[in-house]
Design a binder for these strands. Structure first.
Length: 568
RNA sequence: UGACCCAUGGUGUAAUGGUAGCACUGCAGUUUUUGGUACUGUAUGUCGAGGUUCGAAUCCUUGUGGGUCAACCA
């Protein structure tokens, strides 16, 4: 078990777990626990779905139950197999498995149709010939009762005939719907004769043009839960007012001699500061090329986070930390950033990279000499392996690791000052070479103390600063992509931001071209994730080639030097 | 001016009638071959008013505040 798992082991029960345990205690549903994750395949999964996935699969795991994957594909106009594939990939990547329980709402189209016919025969559903506008007008408002449709008293025979012909394609879209006959005066708007079937002339990604009528969510969802033997149907808070209708349909369907029934339980949706979570708007970002696809590392999608270097463990741990309640809040992204930093700190190999290089020449080091310096892969790991870094007379250091006129608490290199080169020698700055025209520093000259190599007796000497470096001759050029927040406003999903494009951060992607990395960072395999010293956590992007290394910054390190600068 | 749901530090959560705790963030330190990491300390909270009780964040009443619902979306 990883340290991360241990840290969450003791967490107390959330209200859903309490609910489930009570059901178990009462012996409901033969003590079965069966959940489902029911995405509509109309977009890629995002971090908010990860929260639902962890709950649905997590509850099942925790209580020895099962969790189905069910694609809620009742609206062919929005859905596509591309989304089906990506959703399955992302769930697996997160580490969850539905085994042989992959279902589609479209698997049940016949059963749902048959059930609708039963409702018609029982006089509980009717065909309405009115337009969407007329039906909407008759619905009333939350404070005003609705009025009954003139078609409400249609005969069973006529309803049956019309429904049959609707499905044969005899009528145009929008000309007729099937409605449940419940209560136009109900205080719950969803009971005012909800539409349960509509005509759609658009090929379904699985059933093609077999069907001309498609069930609505409210009609399909509870029924699918029932067909699959789901015991706990977990969804987000906005479906709370749908629950009475969910129960109403289940009541019509269930076997009165069998106590089994699925139960819907709602929890709070995930909101993150600076993050847009609406699928519709994310789709818009993709379609308008404001980002480079669903897996753009700035996207809050699972594949975007994956490409950026987030680990499944960190996402799951994040979800465990935020919990499940019935209170809608907004979570600070810094918590997500904390969880990935926490995990990466444990597993990421430390590698030297110089993002903004300046050349440093060690004047008293022999020309042509190369020493291999030992570097610990991960200082947080007692049994860490080591790797070697070539050291030579000419090296690159970070441009801002040298200051000609340093402020008081500057620990790094400055004239006549000593610093340690990480895993190598202590050096002292003896001078610089400046560009005659611009006055810009072009080279830094230092002398090294040969007795201070890491591990030697002379290395005990304390110096305030330690710098990372790469050998000029041996280093490999690379490109580093630094991703900042895509949105600048704290809550871009807020209604007050009418057009989210205004909130887009034009500087969200910075590409740094002149970076130099130590050869080990280019060696491939075990190094897909690492920490560049004092810079941040990175991973190798899929765009990388042997000739052109590309790194994505997963998350920056906490910028202590930045804080120091504020004080000086 | 309806129905349903909700209200604990800046943020997210725990305490299920019995000491308001944890994490993130903030601030201040200690350690360190990077100022990262790790560790320590510290600040800030039960929406208001009544009640029940020996005792209330918890139960009741009421007020206030927030969310959801009037798609042929899910």
């Amino acid at each position: 078990m990883s340290p991360i798992d241990e840290s969450t082991e003791k967490r107390s029960l959330n209200f859903i777990e309490t609910f489930v345990e009570n059901d178990l205690k009462e012996g409901k549903n033969d003590n079965r626990i069966h959940t489902r994750f029911p995405p509509e395949p109309n977009g890629y999964l995002h971090i908010g779905h990860a929260k639902a996935i962890c709950l649905d699969f997590g509850i099942a795991q925790q209580y020895g139950g099962k969790c189905n994957l069910r694609f809620d594909d009742t609206n062919p106009t929005k859905e596509d197999t591309e989304y089906v594939d990506s959703i399955m990939e992302d769930i697996h990547w997160l580490g969850f498995d539905w085994e042989d329980r992959l279902f589609y709402a479209s698997d049940y189209f016949q059963k749902l149709y048959d059930f609708a016919v039963v409702l018609i025969k029982e006089g509980k559903a009717y065909i309405d010939d009115q337009s969407a506008e007329e039906i909407s007008k008759q619905k009333g408002t939350p404070t005003q009762a609705g009025t009954e449709s003139p078609f409400r008293k249609r005969s069973v025979e006529e309803n049956l005939d019309l429904f049959n012909r609707m499905n044969k394609g005899e009528f145009a879209e929008g000309t007729r719907v099937l409605r449940a006959k419940i209560d136009m005066a109900s205080s719950n708007m969803h009971f005012r004769d909800p539409i349960i079937y509509r005509i759609i002339n658009y090929p379904h990604h699985r059933t093609g043009s077999t069907w001309k009528v498609y069930p609505m969510y409210d009609f399909a969802h509870g029924e699918c839960d029932f067909f699959e033997g789901i015991t706990h149907s977990l969804c987000t808070l906005e479906f709370e007012v749908h629950r009475p209708l969910y129960d109403w349909f289940v009541d019509q369907l269930k076997d009165p001699n069998n106590s089994y029934r699925p139960r819907q339980i709602e929890f709070n949706r995930l909101n993150l500061t600076y993050t847009m979570m609406s699928k519709r708007k994310l789709l818009q970002l993709v379609q308008e090329n404001l980002v480079n696809g669903w897996d753009d590392p700035r996207m809050p999608t699972i594949c975007g986070l994956r490409r950026r270097g987030y680990t499944p463990e960190s996402i799951k741990n994040f979800v465990n930390k935020i919990g499940y309640t019935k209170f809608d809040g907004i979570i600070d992204v810094s918590l997500l950033e904390y969880t990935i930093r926490e995990h990466l700190n444990q597993i990421a190999t430390r590698v030297s990279a110089v993002i903004d290089p300046i050349k440093l020449i060690i004047t008293n080091y022999p020309e042509g000499k190369v020493e291999m310096m030992e570097a610990v892969d991960n200082p947080e790991d007692e049994n860490s392996a080591v790797h070697e870094i070539p050291f030579s007379r000419e090296i690159y250091i970070e441009r801002d690791d040298f200051m000609e006129n340093p402020p008081k608490k500057y620990f790094r290199l400055s004239p006549d000052n000593e610093v340690r080169l990480k895993n190598a020698y202590i050096i002292k700055c003896m001078g610089v070479k400046k560009n005659d025209a611009t006055g810009e520093i072009e080279e830094i000259y230092c002398e090294y103390d040969a007795d201070t190599k890491s591990g030697m007796a002379g290395s005990e000497r304390k110096v305030k600063g330690t710098l990372h470096w790469v050998s000029v001759e041996h280093s490999v050029s690379a490109e580093v992509r630094v991703y900042d927040r895509l949105f600048m406003v704290e809550n871009p999903s807020d209604e007050s931001v009418s057009d989210f494009r205004e909130a887009l951060n034009p500087d969200s992607l910075k590409v740094l071209q002149n970076c130099r990395v130590e050869p080990y960072a280019a060696s491939g395999k075990p190094l897909d994730r690492f920490q560049f010293q004092r810079i941040g956590y990175f991973n190798v992007d899929k765009d990388s080639t042997p000739d052109h290394l590309v790194f994505n910054r997963t998350v920056p390190l906490k910028d202590a030097w930045g804080k120091m600068k504020d004080k000086v």
